[in-house]
């Protein structure tokens, strides 16, 4: 089991990098850009076999950031390719990430139905 402090350090550092990117660039880099950037780089690093060692080191510190979601997609794909070949390349990623994607969309929809945007002072 990965100790909590390692998750804190690795997760915190990944967020720190994001903050550096946001502060060093203009405000035109939106949260959307950051999210896309993280999932893409996580997936690429995972494909190169680098991200797994970060996961071994930081546990949830590497899987909770969105780069971990990219990693999950790629690892699912690679596993499915081993079992099912070409078809696996198309089915494996979503299968592995299905829980997260479905949770986000279903909870998102339900919350939107129940709540209203709050006015900020």
């Amino acid at each position: 089991m990965v100790p909590l402090y390692m998750a804190f350090l690795v997760g915190g550092s990944l967020c720190l990098i994001g903050q550096i990117i946001m502060d060093a660039t203009k405000a035109n880099v939106t949260p959307g850009h950051i999210l896309v950037g993280y999932i893409t780089s996580g997936a690429i690093l995972s494909g190169l076999g680098i991200y797994q060692s970060l996961v071994n080191l930081g546990g949830a510190g590497a899987t909770v950031p969105l780069s971990g979601f990219g990693h999950l997609l790629v690892q699912g794909t690679l596993k499915a390719v081993e079992q099912r070949g070409l078809l696996g390349a198309f089915s494996g990623g979503v299968e592995a990430a299905a829980a997260g994607i479905t949770a986000a969309i279903v909870f998102g929809y339900l919350v939107a139905v129940v709540f209203n945007p709050k006015v900020k002072e």
Partner: peptide
């Protein structure tokens, strides 16, 4: 800009 509830840091020039 952004939806009201999105957690976005306000730039100091905003």
């Amino acid at each position: 800009r952004f939806p009201t509830e999105q957690g976005v840091q306000k730039s100091q020039t905003a």
